[in-house]
Design a binder for these strands. Structure first.
Length: 554
RNA sequence: GCCCCCAUCGUCUAGAGGCCUAGGACACCGGCUUUUCAAGCCGAGAACCGGGGUUCGAAUCCCCGUGGGGGCGCCA
């Protein structure tokens, strides 16, 4: 393998919220490319939109990346020789660079209002043409710009695009040529003096000596702009690779909108059935204005993740995971998510599918990235996670569970000892997610008072079977008198009892399960008894005999 | 409306002109196992978007359709 210490890749998110899977895949590919080449992985924060920056978003972003295992070599909190790594900290640099282009006649001021621009765009569409900004014959001076500012007009700086076709050499897609007639003079500096994304990206990629840029295909049409800017500055052009887009199963770009849609659909169904009204939903979502709720309901706007979460809980639906944080909360293993994401748009060429992060870094190559968009198949991810959990060592699983519990305040496993969690994990073999450990064994750890008896289960195993309550009483006695309380002894004693009574094991196991958990879901019954101990077992049997027995009589 | 990208089972993909009777994985379906829920085991079905070329030969190359996706911001 040839190592190239010069390879420098970056992931450059804007801090508008949690990291999306699409962003995670982009980060992963850049990380793998850098690691494969023995190069450097850089994190840069693109916070140039003052109106969209969300407080706390950067912290979430860093946490998500670290959770995934994508530690950056240079960037916020890591430092590095090419900083600052936040665009908001280098405004002077961008302004100076813009000034240089203006003075060289490569960029110019323009003063149009949004309304004027909108009218021009509309006119172009009506005439079935691409909108091209009408470049003035002679460029305004600095003094003209100041005068416009004083007059209250928005002053921006635009790049004078070269009047020639621009061919982007993309390592994944090949050569893509955009005709000069389709290129427009785009904005470099906004009226507030902040740089646009295009401008900051080009300056920063140069400042940070970026050699390879892997990014989503939605950026492909931005690339000619970036190339033109590099020409204007005399910067080298990095190697570009535009990754296929991750789509949801219905075939459109996967994004937070998918969550809005899931909740909206559920809300509309609930409204139709008369279960709730708009006022109630608005209140649950905690919308300050009713109009905000209405606009969301009509698919005109989106709600925050927190609002959707609340509505989801109230409507009884599970939101589709789209942000990395969601996957963590659902109990996915980060290494599994990375493995799965790596296969969306890349394949090793043989039939291997399961990779550790190290194996990925060793196998990854830019040549084997696909062109076609990929759908995000949750079923396959679930299966990968099942396999990942099954193959993980107990120590790894414990650590993953602790990490999961950090973001799951309501879990009954919070505050349990490592030993208990390790035990539960062992008994829960076969779960697909860490959260499923809760459905499988969570009821064993809630307060007795929180046990809710499942009506259908009670009916089937305790009432319809006329002898069941009696059996439960006899088993209780048996268990109370057992000399030792361990799996083998429990197993032997109960099986002997069952044989003697000519019963099936299920005739004892199912009533016991209901007594212990309220339903028919639990790990293997003898291990379960051993796990929770005699005291709790007897207490719960008594509780069941009383409450279900009472119900049976009534 | 304009510009761009893409096209193999339902989904992710292998396939770089003959190794293809198109391989793997998930899902689905059938069976086995079973103290529940899972899991596990065994098995089956399932695809080269259409039409033209090029070639002795095309899933693979070219063209045209069609379909899907993305972009067209003083968002990134």
């Amino acid at each position: 393998m040839t190592t190239n210490a010069q390879v420098r890749c970056r992931f450059a998110p804007s801090p508008t919220g949690y990291l999306h899977v699409g962003g995670a895949r982009t980060a992963l590919f850049n990380y793998l490319l850098a690691k494969r080449a023995g190069g450097t992985f850089i994190l840069r924060i693109e916070d140039t939109d003052q109106t969209r920056n969300v407080r706390d978003a950067e912290r979430q972003l860093l946490e998500d990346l670290r959770w995934l295992g994508l530690q950056w070599d240079e960037g916020p909190e890591a430092g590095g020789a090419c900083g600052p790594y936040r665009q908001s900290e280098k405004l002077e640099r961008y302004r100076a660079q813009a000034r240089q282009l203006i003075d060289e006649g490569k960029a110019y001021y323009s003063f149009d209002t949004r309304e004027e621009l909108e009218a021009m765009r509309k006119a172009a569409e009506a005439a079935k043409r691409t909108f091209i900004y009408p470049r003035p014959k002679s460029f305004p001076s600095h003094a003209d710009a100041q005068k416009a500012r004083d007059a209250g007009r928005p002053v921006v700086v635009r790049l004078a695009m070269p009047e020639r076709d621009i061919t982007v050499s993309d390592t994944i897609l090949g050569e893509v040529t955009i005709r000069a007639a389709d290129l427009t003079d785009f904005v470099l500096l906004k009226p507030d003096g902040w740089p646009t994304y295009h401008f900051a990206v080009v300056v920063d990629d140069y400042d940070m000596k970026i050699t390879h840029v892997l990014r989503g295909q939605e950026h492909l049409m931005n690339t000619p702009n970036h190339v033109a800017l590099q020409w204007a500055f005399g910067y080298p052009t990095p190697v570009y690779g535009h990754l296929p887009i991750i789509l949801n199963m219905s075939g459109s770009k996967m994004g937070k909108r998918d969550k809005d849609k899931a909740v909206r659909d559920a809300a509309l169904a609930a409204l139709k059935s008369g279960k709730v009204d708009d006022n109630a939903l608005c209140q649950i979502a905690d919308c300050p204005e009713f109009d905000q709720y209405l606009s969301w309901k009509e698919a005109q706007s989106q709600l925050t993740s927190e609002q959707l979460q609340r509505l989801g809980v109230a409507l009884g639906i599970v939101l589709p995971e789209v942000q990395v944080h969601d996957f963590r909360q659902s109990g996915y293993l980060p290494e599994v998510l990375c493995n799965f994401l790596a296969l969306l748009g890349w394949s090793p060429g043989d039939s291997r599918e399961k990779f550790s992060m190290e194996e990925l870094a060793a196998a990854f190559s830019i040549e084997r990235i696909n062109k076609a968009n990929a759908r995000f198949d949750r079923d396959k991810l679930l299966n990968f996670n099942l396999d990942g959990i099954a193959k993980a060592t107990p120590e790894r699983l414990l650590a993953a569970m602790r990490s999961y519990l950090e973001v799951s305040p309501a879990s009954p496993f919070r505050g349990q000892s490592d030993e208990t969690i390790l035990n539960v994990l062992k008994l829960s073999a076969g779960v697909r997610t860490l959260r499923e450990v809760e459905t499988k064994a969570g009821a064993l750890f809630v307060d007795d008072a929180a046990i809710r008896y499942d009506a259908a289960a009670v009916e089937k195993f305790l009432i319809k079977d006329a002898g069941a309550m009696g059996v439960l009483r006899e088993v209780r006695k048996l268990l109370a008198e057992l000399p030792t309380w361990e799996t083998a002894a429990l197993d032997a004693a109960v099986r002997a009892f069952v044989d003697e009574k000519k019963l099936k094991l299920a005739a004892v196991a199912q009533p016991l399960r209901i007594a212990l958990t309220g339903g028919t879901i639990s790990p293997a019954i003898f291990e379960t008894l051993a796990l929770i101990g005699r005291e709790k077992t007897l207490r719960r049997i008594d509780r069941c005999l009383v409450s279900v027995g009472g119900a049976a009589i009534a």
